[in-house]
Amino acid sequence: MVFLGGQVLPGNVGRAILGPFADQRAVDALNHSLGVDRPLLVQYGSWIWNFLHGDMGTSYVFRAPVAPFVVDALGNSMKLALVAFVLVVPIGILGGVIAALNFNRPLDRIISLGGLSVTVLPEFVTGIILILIFGVWLRWLPIAAAWPKGAGFFTQLYYLILPSLPLFLVLFGYIARMARSGMIEALDSDYTRTAVLKGLPWRTVIWRHVLRNALLPTITVIATQTGYLIGGLVVIETLFRYQGIGSLIFTAARGKDFPMLEAGILTIGIVYAVATLIADFLYSVLNPRIRLGAEQ
C-alpha cells in the first residue's frame, strides 16, 4: 500500500506538492533539492522498509524522530481539508445541478462563469483577497489559522473557515462543472424521457432518475480533486501560518531536512491513493453495472 502510495505520486513531485498554480521557480527548487538528495536504490529500499515499520527517520533540523511531526501535521491538514470538502462537495454539486436545471438561462451562465473564474485564480490570490476582505476589512474571521491551545471544536472550526475558503473556491468550479455536465447528459437521456412520459412529477424525475446517474461521474472527479486539495495545502498553510503537512514539507524543503521531506511526501501519496481507492469503491457501489458485473 505504501509502495503504491509512492507510485501514485505524479512524475513532477514538486508540482504535486506545491499545487498546480505554484510559482515555477519554487517547483524547480523543490524538485532539484529532491533530486539531489535521492539516495541510491538500496538506501531508498531500506528507508522504505523502515517507514513500513513506523520508523520514518530522524529529522536533521529537530534532531528528533520525524514520525510525531508528520502525524500531527497530517491531523491538522486533514481537519482543514475536511472543512473545505464538507463545504465544497454539497455546494459544488448543488451549483452544478441548479445550473443544469436552468440550462442556458442567466442563472446557469452566472454559476458556470463564476465557477470558472474562481477556479482559474490561484489559491494565494484568492487567499490574500479573502484575508483582506474578511480578516482585515470586515474583521469577521481570524487571519491566522492556528487556534489557541485547547480550543474546542467550534473554535477550531471558526479558525478554519477562512483558510478553507480558497480551497473551496478552486474546487467549486471543477465540481460544479462536472455536476452540471453530468446533469445535462442525464436530463437528455432516454431514461429521463421515459420517466417524464410516465407522468411522474418533475421532482420525482429529478430525485429518483436523474440525480443518481448524473452524479456518478462527479464522484470520480471529486476523488481526483483530493490531489489538488492536498497540493493546495502547501500554499494555503503557509499563507495562513497553519501547522499542516503542507507547511511541514515547505519548511523541510527550505531547511533541507530530507527525512522530514520524504516522510511528508510519502504520506501525501498514501492519502491520495486511499482517496482514489475510496472513490473507486463508492463508484462501484453506486453503479449496479459494475457491482453486479462480477456476478454474471
Binding site: 432516454d190 424521457r193 421515459t194 412520459l197 410516465k198 432518475h209 443518481r212 456518478l216
Partner: peptide
C-alpha cells in the same frame, strides 16, 4: 404543466428504439 403530466400518466404512452437506453440503468 400539471395537466400535461396527468395526460402522460393517464392516457398516452410511448415506446421507442433502443430499450437498453430507455430504462434507468441504476434502478
Amino acid at each position: 404543466a400539471e395537466a400535461l403530466r396527468r395526460a402522460r400518466a393517464d392516457s398516452v404512452s410511448m415506446v421507442y428504439q433502443d430499450p437498453g437506453k430507455a430504462l434507468n440503468p441504476s434502478l
